[in-house]
Amino acid sequence: MSMPNDNLECGHTLEELSLYLDTGEFADPRHLETCPDCRNGLDSLRRLTAAGSELLSNDLAAAGSGNDPWMKNILASLKLELRPGRDIPLRSDDPADRLTETEGSVFALIRSVADATPGAVAGKVRLHGDVTVPGEPITVSVDLAVAFGHPFMRSAAALRLDLAKALARHTELNIAGIDITITDVIDPSAAQAPDPAPQEES
C-alpha cells in the first residue's frame, strides 16, 4: 500500500510536497526525482488537484449563466454610486444660478458617440486640461477597440468629426484636439468563445 502518511519514510512530509506543488520550492529538489515515496505523494496530491478542478467545473456549470434570473436579480438590486468627476461650468442666464455638467456625463457622451461607430467600442476616455475654467483649451483622448478586419480607418475621421459636433452641442468646452488611440483589436468570432451562456430551458 502506498497510502500517504504525513511523514514519509524518506523523512520528508506531505506538507513539504504540498508547498512544493504550489511554489516549486523544495529543500532537496534532486531527491524528488529519485524518491518513490515522494513521487507517490506528489501523484496523490496532483490527483486531488485534478479532482478539485473537475469539481469546480461541475460547480460552475451548476451555478448557471450570467443571463439567468439570479444574475438579473443581483444586477437589478445593485446600487452604484455615480462617478461625477470634475464639475464643468455652463453659462447661466441668471448670474446667481450655478449650472454645471459632470465630467462623468461628458465621458458617457463621448463613449456613446464612439460606440455608434461601426466596428468600434470606446475604452478609456480623458479630458486633458482644466475643464473647471471656461475657455481653457481641452484635449480629448479616447481609447478604442476595433473589430478585426473591419475597415475602421475610414471611420476614424468621421468619428473625430462626430465627437467634435457632439461636444460642441452638449458642452461649452474649448476643444483643442481629439486624440483617438486604437488599443485593442477584437476578433468577434474568437471572442464569442469565453461565454457561450446558452439559455437552458427550465
Binding site: 460606440d115 467600442v121 478609456k124 471572442a191
Partner: peptide, 23 residues
C-alpha cells in the same frame, strides 16, 4: 456592424474595467 448587438460581450476585460472605472 460586427460588434452589434452584444458589443460589450466581445470586449476584453481590461477595456471593460477602464469603462467601468470611468463610470
Amino acid at each position: 456592424d460586427p460588434l452589434v448587438p452584444d458589443r460589450l460581450d466581445l470586449v476584453p476585460d481590461a477595456l471593460l474595467v477602464s469603462r467601468a472605472a470611468d463610470g
